[in-house]
Design a protein around this nucleic acid. Structure first.
Lengths: 150, 150
DNA sequence: TTCGAATATATCGCGCACGATCTAATCGTT
DNA sequence: AACGATTAGATCGTGCGCGATATATTCGAA
């Protein structure tokens, strides 16, 4: 009888049995892989995700970025200020609705994209997974997230 | 031609194509699911992981906990102090090697385990996955982590 | 045995991340 | 027009999480 056959409550209370721990530690591992790749761009990993969204579509509100990233304004506001200080974005109050802040790429921010296109390849290589396996895993994990948030 | 068939560098630079973002956001989602379950235990999610390790095996050093959790002493020391303040653990210098700190469950910490056995079931239900799918996904994500850390 | 290297933990500064709360702007109803 | 309710961001306090560094202990080689 192996450990994985023990399915009562007590046996489930072991670290290795936790999907959550797998995801938690995989996230740390990914962050560590990204760090050296992003240092050349002078971006942290969450900052990079914001930039990716802006390269997809420029001139977005704080709220719409937060909705895509599942982040609150209390997280985004300070982070966006750092990106602004770095010169990659501008934060501009919307003239027709002054409650909103529009986040816009600067020329420097737009130019950064050329350096950033190499980053995903570096990560893909580190996973040692084929494109199909990688995409399947991505879809499963995304689907898990969506189920949990529902 | 669908989006997923675009495999050149530019097309890879979209948020939805990132395995890393899937893991990052799934981790956030899991943390949110855990929060209400753990509030009754007066534990945060990382604190809960430490307690799980100690319930598996009491009297571990800071270093061995960190090795299992992939965390540094700079993260663990303050966290363990909070667990000590909460009354769940004791931090004791090892008499034979004073460099080491042994982390031990208090009676309160041991008693907490009885409440904690219900937590994994709550999470499993939230995933809406069968035991087999869940275990397969856990194994795949763990394996990804191990590949990345190698 | 003594002194330099290695080891274990702690401390510090910074950047996420969240919940609670605040402020300012806009919307809706009267 | 006016005012209560809603909305969008910002601020604050707390807790991870890391890299760099500090301190104390132990180990090892001369």
């Amino acid at each position: 009888m192996t450990g994985t056959e023990l399915k009562d409550d007590d046996a489930m209370l072991t670290l290795d049995s936790f999907l959550c721990f797998a995801v938690y530690s995989a996230n740390h591992a990914l962050t560590r892989i990204y760090k050296p790749l992003l240092e050349e761009l002078d971006l942290t990993y969450p900052q990079y995700l914001v930039m990716v969204l802006l390269w997809e579509k420029d001139d977005q509100t704080v709220g719409s970025l937060g909705e895509r990233l599942f982040l609150e304004s209390s997280t985004l506001t300070p982070m966006l200020k750092r990106l602004e200080a770095a010169g990659y974005i501008a934060r501009v109050r919307d003239k027709t609705d002054e409650r909103q802040v529009r986040v816009q790429l600067t020329d420097m921010g737009k130019a950064l994209r050329r350096k950033a296109v190499d980053v995903p390849r570096g990560l893909t290589e580190a996973t040692k997974l084929g494109a199909d396996d990688l995409e399947r895993l991505r879809a499963e994990v995304s689907s898990l997230r969506d189920t949990l948030l529902k």
